[in-house]
Design a protein around this nucleic acid. Structure first.
Length: 193
DNA sequence: CGGCTTTGACCAGCGC
DNA sequence: GCGCTGGTCAAAGCCG
């Protein structure tokens, strides 16, 4: 499966009484880059170099743990396409497959789709192995924006939704609401018991 | 009628 | 080489 690298420190956890847990198999340890990764979704170059060194600063007491999935090969943040012509350049023939860095985070939420201010169109759904819930694939509907996301609910804990973003939006958020808080408002308060 | 979801088919990568 | 799995496409249907 994919490798997940944490990178969502969410500094003041006290403000938001939600709890999200880190996405499972983080083989690379925390990559705690304190960026506004979420909604900014800014890729980091480190995925390409495999110099994942753990900087324990972030994520440990964070409420939302964000993960970067280095799809195994190379996160070449080029994020290229973004508005490129029809075919995505992810798969060129004869070339090493270049995969955009992906960011995943788990949230406890009743709803699968967190309204992050962007508009998404569903383009696929697949049953995944070892999971009784299907994984849904969404694409940003904004013209020229190639951002994708996957949404999956965990079998182990049906209250946990794993959202994986891939790419960076090339346009401003469409709903200018305080989206992050909106997201948080949709999350269920997590009590360990 | 346009945009979105659903769903089966197709394709590519990967492990055996 | 083959089968499995993940990811995407595209046609059909639904809904506002």
């Amino acid at each position: 499966m994919e490798n997940y690298t944490m990178l969502f420190p969410c500094p003041n956890s006290s403000s938001y009484p939600i709890s999200t847990t880190g996405v499972g198999t983080s083989q690379h340890g925390f990559g705690g880059q304190s960026s506004n990764a979420f909604l900014g979704l800014r890729p980091s170059n480190e995925s390409s170099g495999s110099d994942h060194e753990k900087r324990g600063e972030g994520g440990r007491d964070g409420t939302m743990l964000m993960s970067q999935i280095s799809g195994g090969i190379n996160g070449s943040d080029e994020l290229g396409g973004l508005g490129n012509d029809s075919s995505n350049n992810n798969k060129k023939k004869g070339e090493k497959k270049v995969r955009k860095p992906r960011y995943a985070f788990q949230t406890r939420s009743q709803v699968d789709i967190l309204d992050d201010g962007y508009r998404w169109r569903k383009y696929g759904q697949k049953a995944v192995k070892n999971n009784k819930f299907p994984r849904s694939y969404y694409r940003c509907t904004h013209q020229g924006c190639n951002v994708k996301k996957q949404v999956q609910r965990l079998t182990k804990d049906e209250g946990v939704v794993v959202t994986t973003y891939e790419g960076v939006h090339t346009h401003p958020i469409e709903k200018t609401t305080d989206n992050f808080e909106h997201i948080l408002s949709q999350m269920q308060i997590y009590t360990p018991f």
